[in-house]
């Protein structure tokens, strides 16, 4: 019969091993997809489009790979809780989510179509501010507001 101490040690080792396995197996694209599905659950996202976007964003290395993997490691918790607080962890996660969502929405036809939530949102190609006058929100002089 194993002692209580041995049991705890084995359990901790098992948890760490499982966590480590999840961490190293995690893919950036999966974390990006998870964020989009959670935060834009009120939109109809074109499945192939968001996969392409996730690949494009991951390949640009704009986001910390370690953080994305951590999110995947704890994905059951992430999916379950809303993290709306002002503590450091919640703020950091929210900032990462906003960067992903911002890049996706700007890369899609969503704002081009007047933010119409009844339409399927389609990915157009990774957003590039160097593409002339692609800011969908600007109210330029000489154009109606």
């Amino acid at each position: 019969m194993p002692s209580r101490r041995t049991f705890l040690a084995v359990a901790c080792a098992g948890l760490l091993g499982a966590g480590g396995w999840r961490f190293f197996r995690a893919r950036d694209e999966d974390a990006i997809l998870m964020v989009l599905r959670k935060r834009l659950d009120y939109l109809q996202l074109d499945p192939a489009g968001i996969r392409s976007f996730a690949r494009d964003l991951a390949s640009r290395r704009l986001l910390s790979r370690g953080r994305l993997r951590l999110m995947m490691t704890f994905s059951p918790l992430y999916r379950r809780f809303d993290l709306n607080g002002q503590n450091f962890l919640a703020v950091a996660i929210r900032h990462g989510e906003e960067r992903i969502v911002s890049n996706y929405l700007l890369s899609s036809d969503f704002f081009i179509n007047g933010a119409d939530q009844s339409r399927i949102v389609r990915y157009l190609g990774f957003y590039d501010p160097l593409r002339a006058c692609s800011n969908p929100f600007a109210r330029l002089l000489g154009r109606p507001t």
């Binding site: 935060r39 700007l106 600007a138």
Partner: peptide
Amino acid sequence: WNSPFAYQRASLRTERGRWT
């Protein structure tokens, strides 16, 4: 600052209808 991208903290919000 009037652009939701290209610098560190400015970005869109994620909540429905409250992006900007």
